[in-house]
Each structure stands twice: as C-alpha cells, then as structure tokens.
C-alpha cells in the first residue's frame, strides 16, 4: 500500500520517457556514506544522445548520484548504494559486475581538470592502451582530440606534458581522454566550475557536439548552463526534516518544460532564486 503510494509519487516526479530511448536508468533508493543517508528516492533515466542536466543546491546529492552511475563512489570507504542502475539490460550494481568494466564503458570528466603527468598524446592514448587497442593509435588520438575541439591547438606539441596546457585546454584534454575509447555514456561532474567564462563556453559548445555520438549526463550548479546545454533537467533538493541532510530528486522534465512550467513548489522557489 505504502509502496504503491510511493511509486505513484515517483511517477508524478519523473517525466515519462519512452523506454527505448533510455540508455541508462538510475534508480537510487538510498545512498549511504557509512551511516549517513546522502540520497534517497531518486529515479533518473538518462536518454540516449541527449544531455541530461543535474541541478540543485549544494549538498543535494547530485554529484553523488552522478558518480554512482559509473561506480566511482566505490572508492569511498563506507559508500553503499541501494537500488539499481540498468544499463544494457543488466544492473551495474549486480554483485557479478566488475566496477572496472563499468567505468570503461561509462566515461567520466571531473570537476578539476586532471590530466596525467605525461604527454598530451599519451593522455589520450591511455584508455586505448588500457583496453589493449591494437589498431591505428595515431588516428584514434587525433579523432578524440578533434572530438574535444583541441586538435588544432595541440597538433604541433603532442609530446608536451598535458599539465603544461591552460585550465580550459586541460579540461578538453580530459574530455578527449574520456571519449577516445568511445564509451556510450559520458558523465561530467561540474566540468566548468574551475574554468573562466571563455573556456566554459567552449566546453558547452563541445558538449552539444558530443551528444551526437555520446549520451551525456552533467552536474552543474549553474542554472543558465543547464538551460543552454541540457535537453532534460533533473532538479534535486536537500531534505533536512529528519535531522539529516538527505538529497532527493524533486522533479525531472525536458529542460524547457522544467524551467517554464515547474510542477513542484520547491522547483519554482529554487528557479526564482528564493533559496540556494
């Protein structure tokens, strides 16, 4: 009875998507860090060849949910995920699934640009070598760098250390590194928060290009950014009612719809800047 009520509530929160379009379906019932309940009841379907934006105030669990999708949170001691993430007909939290293989299929770009301390070429080739790619390495590296809109800037200095680039270039290098192995889904955790406005704009333009080949999910604390790039937007909030600070999904809808006609009171307040 209670379950039914909850699932109905869930249905109103999340816009209905055609199952065929959903490439990855994240149903986070509860996410814990040790005893701390960080996220509850968040169902986020990620639609193929679209950009899904995660927005919400600090501490609302949007990054936690994103990093749960490729099991990056497994690195944190005490992390526990209850629920499931369906990807190609299997649950990536199934005990038999190796998190390493999940991360090879679902790429990630982080908040801080984090190229390896090796040449630009080797940074991009890293994933290919990791996956024992035997084909034309140069071609794949060039393709990835072109895909990340970085090729023209670095084609004459591929041997330079990746850390010698500017912040925006480093972040595009990280994107090139992530897309070189052509993962189906690309997760981006506030990829522009450490960048200046010009670099931010470049990355945003890049994301729009990337969705033709990849499915993208991006966490952002910038609502304008979500409006500019995201096709679907998921809004998270923090629940402090039971003495904790638990994030949850308030509502998810196509971006234009969410911003023009939010269904939930909380979403309206947040969009009007009444709390952060």
């Amino acid at each position: 009875m209670l379950m039914e009520a909850q699932s109905q509530q869930q249905a109103t929160k999340t816009h209905q998507y055609d199952a065929a379009d959903v490439v990855l379906d994240c149903q986070a019932k509860q996410i814990f860090y040790s005893d701390f309940l960080a996220v509850r009841d968040s169902h986020v379907p990620i639609v193929k060849n679209k950009i899904t934006g995660f927005i919400g105030p600090s501490g609302c669990g949007k990054s936690t949910v994103l990093k749960s999708i490729n099991r990056m949170n497994d690195l944190i001691r005490g992390f526990r995920f209850e629920g499931n993430v369906h990807f190609h007909g299997m649950d990536i939290y199934d005990k038999k699934v190796d998190p390493v293989s999940v991360r090879r299929n679902i790429g990630m770009v982080f908040q801080q640009p984090n190229p390896f301390s090796m040449s630009i070429y080797e940074n991009v080739a890293f994933g290919l070598r990791l996956n024992r790619y035997k084909g034309d390495m140069d071609e794949k590296v060039e393709k990835a760098l072109r895909g990340a809109a970085l090729w023209d800037e670095v084609k004459n200095k591929l041997k330079n250390n990746g850390l010698s680039l500017s912040g925006g270039q480093q972040q595009r290098l990280c994107i090139a590194r992530a897309i070189a192995t052509e993962p189906q889904v690309l997760l981006m955790d506030e990829p522009c928060s450490a960048l200046d406005p010009i670099a931010t704009r470049q990355i945003e333009e890049l994301m729009v290009q990337l969705k033709e080949r990849f499915t993208v999910a991006i966490v952002t604390h910038n609502m304008q950014q979500a409006q500019r790039v995201a096709d679907q937007t998921a809004f998270f909030a923090v629940d402090i009612s039971r003495g904790g600070r638990t994030g949850y999904l308030v509502e998810m809808a196509p971006t234009a719809e969410l911003f023009s006609n939010p269904q939930e009171e909380l979403t309206k307040e947040y969009l009007h800047g009444e709390f952060s």
Partner: peptide, 15 residues
C-alpha cells in the same frame, strides 16, 4: 600526487 590524479586513473577504468 593529488587525489584527482588517482580519481582520473580509476575513472578511466584501471584496476
């Protein structure tokens, strides 16, 4: 070595 470097490695799917 900054933590983000390690994160990048695991993010690429290294064991």
């Amino acid at each position: 070595i900054p933590h983000k470097t390690k994160e990048a490695a695991f993010g690429m799917g290294t064991t």
